[in-house]
Amino acid sequence: MNEFQPKIVAFCCYFCAYSAADLAGSMRLQYPPTVRMIEQPCSGRIDIQLILQAFEDGADGVYVAGCLEGDCHFLKGNFRAKLRVGQAKKVLDDVGIGGERVEMYNLSGSMGPRFAEVAHEMHERIKNLGPSPLNKTAASAPLPAAAGSE
């Protein structure tokens, strides 16, 4: 049977998560290929519309990774990001996709192992939740070789 492989979009701040991902790479740490990263100049660049758009374009989960609280290079970007992720959770609950599919993380550029851990954590969470309601029909219908059906 085809196992569900989620599509997860990670909006990563250039100064922390993005560098942490680099470090995780140099340390040869494994993390799930289901996570696709988008570099941001600061996690404060995130906007609720970007999060919603990711879901509309097929994501099953989204997370935003910013610097540790107090360490944002633009002072309050990661606090803004946190509030916006909270707002996105509410909207996703309202529209029936589920707020638990989006999360905010904070880490520093030197936290390569934590980066991999976060990726695993989100991968597991979304895997347990199953495909986004928008992807459900697509996932369950056209796979001819898949054994069994719903």
């Binding site: 919603l52 758009q53 879901f55 509309e56 909207v91 309202d94 529209v95 029936g96 309601p133 928008l134």
Partner: peptide, 10 residues
């Protein structure tokens, strides 16, 4: 607009 589309797509 996006929220309405997300809801109705389901």
């Amino acid at each position: 607009a996006t929220s309405l589309r997300l809801l109705r797509k389901q």
